[in-house]
C-alpha cells in the first residue's frame, strides 16, 4: 500500500494506530484523500470512524503513525491549531453553543479570520469596530449559504434538529476550510432533510472544499461520494467507488456480520 504522495492529495494517513487501554480502535490505517473529492467513511458501529476524525482534528493523539495535511505533519498539534490550517469539522450529535444566537454561532466561526484582541475588544463598543461589522456580514453570508439566514437572531438551542445540523455546518464553513469532516451529517434527519443535506454537500464541493464524511445513510453515501472507505475493527476493509464497494464480498460480510 506504499503509495507515492501525489500532488493531488490533501490528507494522508500513514499506518495510524490508536489504542485505548487494551482496545485497538484504529489498527494501522493507511489512506490518502484526493483534493476536491467527497469521501465517505462507512462501517459498523464501533468500527473506529469517529476516532479517525478525532485523530485528524487533534482531539486525540495517535498512538503511532503519521497524519499529513498539505505537506504538514499534524500529529502533535492542538485542535485550534489544526483548525487554523484549514480543517473544519462537525460532531456526532451536533455541538452548538446553545445559549448564543444562530448568527453568533457562525460569528465564532470567523474567529480565525479576524484578530481583535482583548484590549480593543474591551474599550470600543462593537458598533464602532469595522471588523465586527465585517464578521457579522460574513456570518450572514454563510447562513445564507446553508439556507438559515431567516433564523439569524433565533437562539441556537431552540432551532429544530435539522436546522441545528445545518447551522453546525455553516459554522464550520465559516472558518473557510480546505477540508471539512462531517460526522454523520444525516443522522436524525428525515428523508426530505437528507436530500437537502446531500445538495448542501454537493454545494460545498463546488466551493473547492474537500469533504470527508462518516455516514450510515447508504442512499446518501452512494449518491454523493466519489470514493467510499469501509472500516471495520479499525482496519480498512474496502476502498473504491460506491459501485465497487457495494459489490465487495468483504464489505457485505462485515455488514451482515458473517
Amino acid at each position: 500500500m506504499m503509495q507515492a504522495k501525489r500532488a493531488g492529495h490533501i490528507l494522508s494517513l500513514e499506518n495510524i494506530r490508536k489504542v485505548f487501554g487494551g482496545v485497538v480502535a484504529v489498527d494501522g490505517l493507511t489512506v490518502s484523500v484526493e483534493k476536491g473529492s467527497v469521501t465517505s467513511v462507512i462501517g459498523p458501529n464501533g468500527a473506529g470512524k469517529t476516532t479517525v476524525f478525532n485523530l485528524i482534528t487533534g482531539f486525540l493523539p495517535p498512538s503511532a503513525g503519521r497524519i499529513t495535511y498539505s505537506g504538514r505533519v499534524l500529529n502533535r498539534l492542538k485542535p485550534h491549531h489544526i483548525a487554523s490550517l484549514g480543517i473544519a469539522r462537525t460532531f456526532q450529535g451536533v455541538r452548538l453553543f446553545p445559549q448564543m444566537s444562530v448568527l453568533e454561532n457562525v460569528m465564532v466561526g470567523r474567529h480565525l479570520r479576524s484578530k481583535t484582541g482583548i484590549f480593543s475588544s474591551s474599550c470600543l463598543p462593537p458598533v464602532l469596530r469595522q471588523e465586527e461589522n465585517r464578521i457579522r456580514q460574513e456570518a450572514i453570508d454563510w447562513l445564507d449559504f446553508v439556507g438559515l439566514k431567516e433564523y439569524a437572531e433565533a437562539v441556537a438551542g431552540n432551532l429544530p434538529f435539522g436546522n441545528q445540523r445545518m447551522l453546525e455546518i455553516a459554522r464550520a464553513l465559516a472558518i473557510e476550510p480546505h477540508l471539512i469532516l462531517l460526522d454523520e451529517p444525516a443522522a436524525g434527519l428525515n428523508s426530505r432533510e437528507t436530500i437537502v443535506m446531500g445538495e448542501l454537500i454537493e454545494k460545498i464541493r463546488q466551493e473547492q472544499i474537500t469533504v470527508i464524511l462518516v455516514e450510515h445513510d447508504m442512499e446518501l453515501v452512494m449518491d454523493i461520494s466519489d470514493r467510499v472507505l469501509v472500516i471495520n475493527f479499525g482496519r480498512l476493509i474496502g476502498d473504491g467507488t460506491p459501485e465497487t464497494v457495494q459489490d465487495d464480498p468483504d464489505v457485505i460480510a462485515a455488514y451482515l456480520g458473517e
Binding site: 482534528t57 485542535p79 460532531f91 455541538r95 446553545p98 448564543m100 465564532v108 472558518i175
Partner: peptide, 10 residues
C-alpha cells in the same frame, strides 16, 4: 457552550 466545538473553530 462546548469546549470541543470552540476548539474545532480555532
Amino acid at each position: 457552550g462546548s469546549e470541543e466545538a470552540a476548539a474545532s473553530l480555532g
